[in-house]
Amino acid sequence: MKYLTFAAGLLSATTALAEVPTLTVYTYDSFTAEWGPGPQVEKAFEEVCGCYLKLVAAGDGAALLARLKLEGARTEADIVLGLDTNLVQAARDSGLFAPHAVTAEYDLPIEWSDANFVPYDWGYFAFVQSRDLAAPTSFRALADSDLKIVIQDPRSSTPGLGLLMWVKAAYGDEAPAIWEGLADNIVTVTKGWSEAYGLFLDGEADLVLSYTTSPAYHLIAEEDDSKTAAPFDEGHYMQVEVAGKLAATDQPELADQFLQFMVTDAFQSVLPTTNWMYPAVTPEAGLPAGFETLIQPAKALLFSPEEAAELRDPALTEWLTALSR
């Protein structure tokens, strides 16, 4: 009898367990890391949703979409979090995403409206440098100087692709000339952001392509105010990171709830000092101390997803031609 009670107890416990639904979110590596936003977001959402939030790390943004395409409609994922505007068109074309119903007052420097994707944070690409170096004021000034830069390859890295778009957005048809001018400033091109930033910190280059928010990491986490970003007259290209709901999700309500939760303070206030980006909706308490020291670009540049998708291949060819000489 004792065993029966035990078995019954076990049975009801597992049923109770099974009744708690799980929301699966595919995201990039650094989001789920213990020092990333993942753990705090998970805790905050589980407090309000009565569900398990399962964050699955799947490489970087581009790997995320590739992974999703490999899995197709059978994917376990309910939400994908971490695509950027350069991937949005390809993601939309995959037909894997469903429309969302999120409404929010975004604090983005541009207008945002997209049927499938909800932005959660954003940043400006920028060249990061030591504070005591006279900052170049534009791509032209950079190209004319002897300053050495290290950049990422647009074929393997999101910031690399962002730089390609930045030059294209600022200079249009003159982009090839800008790249030819920059060729002798480029120390090297790396596979990803980490390699480039590592090389910069080791002194291999004067500037590195990163974000305007990068100096905030050094200031806040390391109490080191020696880094700054160079403000460029042309304006700075933006990266907007978005999330979307899979059409094949088995948890559509939870997924909607998560997307709506994503633009609230509980989620947004975690981002600045874990993801080191600007939150899409500034939390009521404002940005953390230190963010006010960051440069404020005069102009925000961003192609629409359609334009970005269309421009990518020609811009890549221009880049390759100019730098392969």
Binding site: T188, V189, K191, E195, L323
Partner: peptide
């Protein structure tokens, strides 16, 4: 990654 980084570009 080695070839790209040490090779100095595309």
């Amino acid at each position: 990654a080695v070839a790209l980084t040490l090779g100095g570009g595309p």
